[in-house]
Every structure is written in structure tokens, then in C-alpha cells.
Design a protein around this nucleic acid. Structure first.
Length: 274
DNA sequence: AGCACA
């Protein structure tokens, strides 16, 4: 346990040597510090991570769940906040109870390609409500006592909002299993098929089990730049269909996704995992 | 690019 912590600190220092922003001393005292001093963590570290470059095609609730699951590897996730308005889309705030957890998460998840886009992770500029609430309940209560006095039945305190808020609080403080220390350098998140990045290979699911390869070829070769259909002997309800390029695959995918083969169940056509 | 929640 102690050894692990030490190893992490070393890692953090090595990372800083490569990636830490250049120091800009603000006072003469800072400037006078010996240059031999060890690299320090950036001073802007926060319990909350600010994430940019998220795929805004992904439904917000889905994105929040994914982020919660992704980041719970590093400690209890207090809250995930994201909005879809113009200014805020593609961004999210993920809160932990300790800066150390955030630091480790930042380091390991940086550039992680979520839904096809590398996450850009930094620290939030201000403290999150969820963090204040857990780390300094008095401060939180004081703030809210004031608010409630001012706006008894405002748009932030009507029954609908209240229900939403309670749900959110349940999520923030809720019983998330204590996460074990991460073992892999990169976290493993299973991407839903629908959100996989483009691929010249398509993944076809929910095929009727008696479908023949010829039937599939007939169906998919109607689209330009078709290359081949591959089936798996043991799994008869799925197939892979390859095209010469992503654009061609995309045309076929869009045309055939949810297509009813026997007037029966719809087939599912998505990009294959790379 | 863009730092919210209260």
C-alpha cells in the first residue's frame, strides 16, 4: 500500500518533467527559490476535474454514466456535472473528495479516447457544490439557508427541480462500492456499439440464425466499394461486413441499420470495434 | 474554444 503510493508520486513527478506548464513566478521570493528544487505539482490542482473535447453527439445522461463509471476507478465520484448548451457542450466536471484522487485520475485518463474523442482533462477553476457539501458541510448549509430564505418557491426550488436535485444527491453520496486501486494503466470502458468511431468494417447483429452469407452479400454489395462479408461459424446471428473505406461503410450502415430482414426483427448495423 | 452546480 505504502509502496504503491510512493510509486505514484514518482510517476507524477516524472510526468511533470515532461508536461508541467512552465513556471511563472509571481513574486521576487518565488524567483529567489533555488532552481534545484524538485518539480512541484501545479498549484491549480482541484478535487474536481474539468474535461473538454467530449463527444457531444452522445446523450448527456449516457455520457454522465460513462464518466462516473470511468472515474470511479480512482475513488468515489461525488458528482458529474455537464450541460448541453452552446457554451458548455463537450465539457464536464467530475468531482472527487480529495485532490489526490483527482490528480491520479487526471494523469491516467488524460487523452483517453472516449466515444472516439481524446478527453482533454484539467482541473476545475472553482470548487464544485458536491465537493463543498462533503468537505465542508457547514459552509454548504450556510449558503443554502440563505438561498432558501430568499427564494422560497423559485425555479430552483419547485417540486420538479427538488426531485431532480434529490436524485442527483443520491447519486453523489450514494452507495458506490469502494473502488480497488486501478491495475491497468488505461481504464477499460466498454463503448456502446452505437457510439463507436467510424470504421470501414461494419458489425451486423440480430441476424436471423438461418441467414446465408450469400444473402448478406446480396444485401451489402448493393453499396459502393463493398469488399466482403465475414461470418462466424459459432455465432450465426452476427457478421462483419467490410468496405474499402469508412465513407462507403457509413453509407451502407445508415441505409441498413434497423432494416427488417424477414419483416421480422430489425438487424443492427454499427461500426465494428477497432 | 468554451469553467457549472448553488
Amino acid at each position: 500500500m505504502a509502496e504503491m503510493a510512493d510509486a505514484n508520486i514518482e510517476d507524477a513527478e516524472q510526468m511533470n518533467k515532461i508536461e508541467a506548464p512552465s513556471q511563472t513566478p509571481e513574486t521576487a521570493a518565488d524567483e529567489a527559490k533555488p532552481a534545484t528544487e524538485e518539480q512541484e505539482e501545479p498549484e491549480n490542482a482541484s478535487e474536481t476535474l474539468y474535461i473538454q473535447n467530449l463527444n457531444d453527439q452522445v446523450k448527456l445522461s449516457y455520457m454522465k454514466t460513462t464518466l462516473t463509471n470511468l472515474f470511479r476507478h480512482y475513488g468515489k465520484v461525488l458528482d458529474v456535472v455537464a450541460h448541453r448548451n452552446v457554451r458548455m457542450r463537450g465539457q464536464a466536471f467530475v468531482s472527487f473528495a480529495h485532490v489526490d484522487l483527482a490528480r491520479k485520475a487526471l494523469k491516467e485518463v488524460q487523452k483517453f479516447p472516449l466515444y472516439g474523442k481524446p478527453m482533454q482533462v484539467s482541473y476545475a477553476k472553482t470548487r464544485s457544490e458536491a465537493v463543498v457539501k462533503t468537505l465542508s458541510p457547514e459552509e454548504f448549509d450556510e449558503f443554502h439557508a440563505l438561498r432558501l430564505k430568499r427564494k422560497k418557491r423559485s425555479r430552483w426550488d419547485n417540486p420538479v427541480r427538488r426531485k431532480l436535485r434529490l436524485k442527483k444527491e443520491a447519486l453523489a453520496t450514494g452507495a458506490q462500492p469502494e473502488a480497488p486501486a486501478p491495475t491497468a494503466k488505461r481504464p477499460v470502458v466498454l463503448m456502446p456499439d452505437e457510439y463507436l468511431p467510424p470504421n470501414q468494417i461494419l458489425f451486423v447483429q440480430n441476424l436471423p440464425p438461418d441467414i446465408t452469407k450469400d444473402a448478406l452479400v446480396a444485401m451489402f454489395s448493393r453499396f459502393e466499394n463493398f469488399y466482403e462479408v465475414r461470418m462466424i461459424p459459432t455465432k450465426k446471428d452476427i457478421a462483419f461486413v467490410e468496405y474499402a473505406d469508412e465513407a462507403s461503410a457509413t453509407v451502407a450502415k445508415d441505409a441498413l441499420h434497423n432494416f427488417k430482414l424477414d419483416g421480422e426483427a430489425k438487424i443492427k448495423v454499427t461500426y465494428a470495434r477497432k
